[in-house]
Amino acid sequence: MADFNKSESMGAQEARNILAVNALQKSFGSLQVLKDISLRVEQGNVVSVIGPSGSGKSTLLRCISFLEKADGGDILYDGQHAVKDGVYATKAELNRFRTRFGLVFQNFNLFPHYSVMKNITEPPMIRGESREEVTERASALLKKMGLEGKENAYPCQLSGGQQQRVAIARALALNPEILFFDEPTSALDPELTGEVLKVIRQLAEEKMTMVVVTHEMPFARAVSNRVIFMDKGVIVEEGHPEQVLGSPQQERTRQFLRNYQR
């Protein structure tokens, strides 16, 4: 492991890979959902993942956020192995890795019995930060999310778009190096998707590193540095958004995009 980290730091000019996944495998019973997934996410980049339903996009995000246990492959954060050849680091180490990423769910998963403020402040406080410092950060994040004055509201009093923005603030409050989004706007009414996408776009402008699973093609095209098209557990095509979405090389990508426009 020490050797690996050395080799990684040798190319000093190379951009830092916040996340690296090698040959990731995952099956549910006899169903192989991730067949051989490899990807890199460089610091400050936004990678969009698109693909038909059931292609394994959520499973990929769930594996790299440790919600699902991969069967094989490597997961590295900033050059450090969290998973090596399907073998996981210790529980304590994994918990430290968890501070490196944040995950935003399709259906928010806010804690309904907590106020907006407490939803955001409790996780960092559980990790030992003081209330003062966390509260200050949370207020700044709420302001940034356009949710000033909602500190004492409960999730049920907010619109879906507002709830998702609270969820983003909650993830950001832990100062992650990378944020994962699993279809952050799919549970929203169409008129509310814009406000959430705007926030993500703003984060992209601030060079937040992100992986976004999405069906919003114009958004992916405008915001991503790279687009990955997945189908049946493999990466079929990846590259610059203009290339993958504008002039795809693979027939399956073309077919997916064609069906998508209809």
């Binding site: 956020s65 919600l67 769910f105 259906n107 998963n109 990790r127 909650r170």
Partner: peptide, 14 residues
Amino acid sequence: IPIGQYEAAEVLGY
């Protein structure tokens, strides 16, 4: 209680 509550808590370090 929805499974998502457990998952959110796990990712947040509870």
